[in-house]
Nucleic acid binder design. Structure first.
Lengths: 119, 119
DNA sequence: TTGACACATACCGGTATCGGTATATAATGC
DNA sequence: GCATTATATACCGATACCGGTATGTGTCAA
């Protein structure tokens, strides 16, 4: 059975945030809740597109909505970002120079151990 | 001109890391360099698929290769992850309870200001 | 040199994704 | 009620993406 469906898709925060426009939206919402048209004005993008991006963000729990008259006020809920922060944080030593140095030392220790394999 | 191409695609770390398999690969490489077949064994995925994911990771600079005989030893270079860490870090107060509390205080101050709008 | 091994690449099919346009829905104002 | 505003949704076309299979390329070993 070739070409089968792959695992979900835009179902998690990683994917939601992979899209630059959605990151822009979150950047805009970080200062507080905003109606859709506000975002449409700020981004250079049509209203339906913004609504669709907001839908994705909503589905992964990154934004929440509140109705105010005929507008929908969107606000951030960053909790799903914690997962990303944690995962990426686990790789800190792979970009941090100080940790790189530490790794060098550990490598040396390992080499010494191998050299003294006869004790 | 409808249906035009969208901005690049798998061209940055955000996108590279949005794919679960590629995160698994990085998780496996965090302990040290490994040849491709090692990864194929660890993941439940064909060798060509792993090679293609490694290519994406290579293109965004998240892994580097070293030739050893007929194998290619892949290792992590986490530097591109720093960008993600920084961006996500900017939203910490949107998931952290302590910051939530702080925000509550700020909100109160703002309200008080509005109340004293006559001084 | 021939064969096995390790890996990369090309191609295919199915689906997801994105922006764009048109339309539906719902609230507001006259 | 009717027009307007604010937003969501449906549909479309183009493309990107992912896994699978087949094949290419380079390296080692007999």
């Amino acid at each position: 059975m070739p070409g089968m469906a792959r695992a979900a898709a835009t179902a998690d925060a990683f994917n939601a945030v992979a899209e630059p426009r959605r990151r822009e939206i979150l950047d805009l919402l970080v200062t507080g809740e905003r109606p859709v048209n506000d975002l449409v004005g700020a981004l250079e993008l049509g209203q339906p597109q913004v609504s669709k991006h907001l839908r994705v963000l909503r589905e992964v729990g990154l934004v929440e909505v509140r109705e105010r008259g005929r507008q929908r006020m969107y606000r951030i809920n960053g909790r799903p970002l914690e997962q990303i922060h944690d995962w990426v944080g686990g790789f800190e030593r792979t970009w941090n120079e100080r940790f790189d140095a530490l790794e060098g030392v550990l490598e040396e220790l390992k080499t010494e151990e191998e050299d003294n394999a006869d004790d």
